[in-house]
Simulated scan of single mutants.
Amino acid sequence: MVSARSEPGSQAPQSPTVGVLALQGDVREHVRALTDVGAFVRPVRRPAELDDVDALVIPGGESTTISKLAETFELLEPIRKRIGDGMPTYGSCAGMIMLASEVLDGRPDQQSFAGIDMSVRRNAFGRQIDSFEAPVEIDGISGPAFHAVFIRAPWVERVGEGVRVLGRVTDGTAAGRIVAVRQGNLMATSFHPELTGDLRVHALFVDLVRAAA
C-alpha cells in the first residue's frame, strides 16, 4: 500500500526513468510530482526519446489535440507498440481517454493508444464550468480519501474482464461512476492528481514501474 503522503527526496540508485508525453497538457506538473516520488523524468516529444524511458505518463489536457500531435510527431504507433510490449503507462484525464480502447463522444477521426480494454466517455462530467473537486477512495492507496480534481473529466462506462476498477465517485448524481482503473502495467484516472500536493497516485505508479522492471 502507498502511504498517506509520499515524502519528496533524492532519486534512489535504481530509480526508474519515466517519460512524460510533452505534446500538450499538464507536463510540468507531472514532472514535478514524479521527481518528488523518486523517479528520473524526461519529456518525450520524439520516438527516439521514447526509447530512453522505462515508463510513460500521458498528462491531462485536450485529448483530440494530443491525438493529432501524436500523429504529427510520429509517436502514435511507437507508443502503441511500447504499450503492447508491456511498458508501464499512466494517463490522467485526457491521458485516460488516450489509453482507452473505445472513446465515446470523441471526434470521428480521433485516435487513441488503445491500451486499456474500456469505453471512456469524453467530457462526461460536463464542461469547464462544471469542474469540481471530490474525495475518491482508491484501491491500493492507504490513508484518507484522495482529494480529486475533475476538469472536463471523462468517466469509464465499460471495462473488460482484465481491467481492475481502482476508484469510483461516491457522492452526488455521478455516484458509482468509475474514475480510476488498472490493467496490467497500465493505469488511468479521470482526475488530475498532478494538480494537488498529494503524491500518492504518482507514488503508486512509480511502484508499479519498479515492480514491472
Rank of each mutant, 00 (worst) to 15 (best):
Thr72Glu: 09
Arg45Gly: 11
Asp52Ala: 15
Ile66Arg: 00
Ala33Asp: 09
Glu49Thr: 07
Thr35Arg: 13
Thr64Tyr: 05
Ala48Trp: 06
Glu62Arg: 02
Ser67Met: 01
Thr64Cys: 00
Arg32Gly: 08
Ile66Gln: 01
Leu50Arg: 06
Ala33Gly: 08
Val37Thr: 12
Ala55Tyr: 04
Ala39Lys: 05
Pro59Asn: 14
Phe40Met: 10
Ser67Asp: 01
Asp51Ala: 09
Asp51Thr: 13
Phe40His: 11
Glu62Asn: 01
Phe40Ile: 08
Asp54Ile: 07
Pro43Val: 14
Ile58Trp: 03
Asp36Pro: 03
Leu75Thr: 06
Glu62Phe: 00
Phe73His: 15
Arg32Ala: 15
Leu34Ala: 12
Gly60Arg: 05
Pro43Gly: 07
Ala33Trp: 05
Arg45His: 04
Val41Pro: 02
Thr72Pro: 00
Ala33Asn: 15
Pro59Cys: 10
Leu69Arg: 07
Arg42Trp: 09
Ser63Glu: 03
Val44Asp: 07
Leu75Ile: 11
Asp51Trp: 03
Leu50Ala: 05
Ser67Ala: 14
Arg32Thr: 15
Glu77Asp: 09
Ala70Met: 03
Ala70Gly: 08
Glu49Ser: 09
Asp36Gly: 02
Val37Leu: 13
Arg32His: 14
Ile58Arg: 02
Glu71Gly: 00
Leu34Gln: 12
Lys68Ser: 00
Glu74Trp: 06
Val53Arg: 08
Ala39Ser: 10
Glu77Ser: 09
Leu50Pro: 04
Phe73Glu: 08
Leu56Arg: 08
Pro47Leu: 05
Glu62Met: 01
Val57Ser: 01
Pro59Glu: 05
Leu69Ile: 04
Lys68Val: 01
Thr35Tyr: 07
Val57Ile: 14
Leu34Glu: 10
Glu71Asp: 05
Asp54Pro: 09
Thr65Asp: 01
Leu75Val: 11
Ser63Gln: 04
Ala39Val: 13
Val44Ser: 12
Thr64Asp: 02
Leu50Val: 04
Glu49Gly: 11
Arg32Ile: 15
Asp54Asn: 13
Thr64Gln: 07
Val53Gln: 13
Thr64Ala: 07
Ser67Trp: 00
Ile58Asn: 02
Leu69Gln: 04
Asp54His: 15
Asp36His: 10
Thr35Val: 08
Arg42His: 04
Ala48Ile: 04
Phe40Ala: 10
Val53Asn: 06
Ala55Val: 08
Thr72His: 13
Pro59Val: 07
Asp52Trp: 05
Leu56His: 09
Pro47His: 08
Asp51Ile: 03
Leu75Trp: 01
Leu50Met: 04
Glu49Leu: 10
Glu49Cys: 12
Asp52Ile: 08
Arg45Ser: 10
Ser63Thr: 12
Asp54Val: 11
Val31Ser: 01
Pro59Gln: 14
Val41Ser: 10
Ile58Lys: 06
Leu34Asp: 13
Asp52Arg: 14
Pro47Ser: 11
Gly38Pro: 02
Val37Ser: 14
Val41Tyr: 15
Arg45Asp: 06
Thr64His: 04
Arg32Asp: 13
Leu76Asp: 03
Asp54Glu: 15
Ala33Thr: 14
Arg46Pro: 03
Asp36Ala: 14
Phe40Glu: 14
Ala70His: 02
Ala33Leu: 06
Ala70Ser: 14
Leu75His: 08
Phe73Val: 05
Glu77Pro: 02
